[in-house]
């Protein structure tokens, strides 16, 4: 089932928000930029493919701007 492309405005808002924090969960991003979490998930997926953000798995999944969080020792 194709969910279609992400909304470019949501992608911009996600990048802008992640610039203000170290890392965040999709749910937190959705709340902060006031859009449904599904839209954030889709935007993050595209942004990850574009190498602009990365997923961090720290018991749950966080999202951060690429390279912003140092890898664990």
């Amino acid at each position: 089932m194709d969910k279609g492309p992400a909304d470019p405005k949501v992608k911009e808002a996600v990048l802008a928000y992640l610039d203000t924090v170290e890392k965040a969960k999709s749910k937190e991003i959705a709340k902060a930029i006031d859009v449904p979490k599904g839209a954030v998930d889709l935007a993050v997926k595209e942004l990850a493919a574009e190498d602009l953000v990365e997923y961090l798995y720290i018991t749950t999944t966080f999202v951060a701007l690429k390279g912003k969080v140092a890898p664990p020792e």
């Binding site: 998930d41 749950t60 999944t61």
Partner: peptide
């Protein structure tokens, strides 16, 4: 196959 993201990314 459809839900690979959901399967590999605990969120």
């Amino acid at each position: 196959n459809e839900f690979q993201d959901e399967l590999h990314r605990p969120m």
